[in-house]
């Protein structure tokens, strides 16, 4: 579904992504972990078309895409951002926020689609005519996910979707994402610095360091500690160490 070959992204003289390749089958889910500054979000932004200054090859559904994307691409690929406080328009009602992608793509049955998608992310219908500031962080992230889903995409790019949320809300959102993937046969790329979150949702995990993907490992091998690269071992050791209560 998603093929990336030798992706390079440069900001001025600074090469941030240095030849990353990855392959995600349809209905699969791929996790990218790494420290801040390792280039993991930059990969996602190049994939989503938010950053056009890249070289290499990106193909979605077997079709190569360039720096500029057509409308069909933006329907097929949607993104959910880290901060549910910053990614929703503060002066638009949830109804307006959700109907915008439908208007852009000229889709019909707006009324019914909004009702369905709200039910799908387990939000009450009453939320429809509220503003983002009237909702909790978890509810807002559900709205962001609903907005991504409403155009019926095939690929969902998730950039730290739970790191701004409480652990109890994080559990709900992760369950929701897992259910949605199963129900709609979505393809995910999930970026996070939390190894436990990534390995919970993704059977395959890529580890990034300094703009390179230093290791691609299955979640089982990661759990069992069968790591190849020292950086992966380091991240794993830290995660295991801090996750157990003292």
């Amino acid at each position: 579904m998603i093929e990336v070959e030798q992706l390079r992204v440069r900001f001025g003289d600074n090469e941030v992504v240095k030849g990353v390749s990855l392959n995600v089958p349809a209905g699969g889910s791929f996790g990218i972990v790494g420290e801040s500054g390792s280039g993991k979000s930059t990969v996602l932004r190049a994939l989503s078309g938010l950053n056009g200054a890249w070289t290499g090859r990106i193909a979605i559904d077997g079709e190569s895409v360039g720096p500029r994307r057509d409308k069909a691409f933006f329907r097929k690929v949607q993104m959910v951002f880290q901060d549910p406080y910053g990614s929703l328009h503060p002066r638009q009602t949830i109804d307006r926020i959700l109907s915008e992608p439908l208007l852009v793509h000229g889709m019909d049955n707006i009324e019914r689609r909004i009702e369905t998608v709200l039910a799908e992310v387990a939000l009450p219908n009453a939320v429809r005519f509220r503003y983002p500031h009237q909702l909790s962080g978890g509810q807002r992230q559900r709205v962001a996910i609903a907005r991504a889903l409403i155009a019926e995409p095939e690929v969902l790019l998730l950039d730290e979707p739970t790191s701004a949320l409480d652990v109890s809300v994080q559990a709900e959102i992760l369950n929701l994402l897992a259910d949605l993937r199963e129900r709609r046969n979505l393809t995910y790329i999930l970026v996070s610095h939390n190894l436990a979150v990534v390995s919970h949702l993704c059977p395959t995990v890529g580890v990034m360091l300094g703009g390179q993907m230093v290791e691609v490992i299955s979640a089982e091998d990661l759990r069992a500690g069968k790591t190849q690269h020292p950086h992966t071992s380091e991240l794993r050791a830290l995660s295991v160490d801090l996750e157990e209560p003292a």
Partner: peptide, 11 residues
């Protein structure tokens, strides 16, 4: 609170 955390070692 402890249970709802995803875990690397105990999936």
């Amino acid at each position: 609170l402890l249970n709802c955390l995803p875990s690397l070692t105990h999936p």
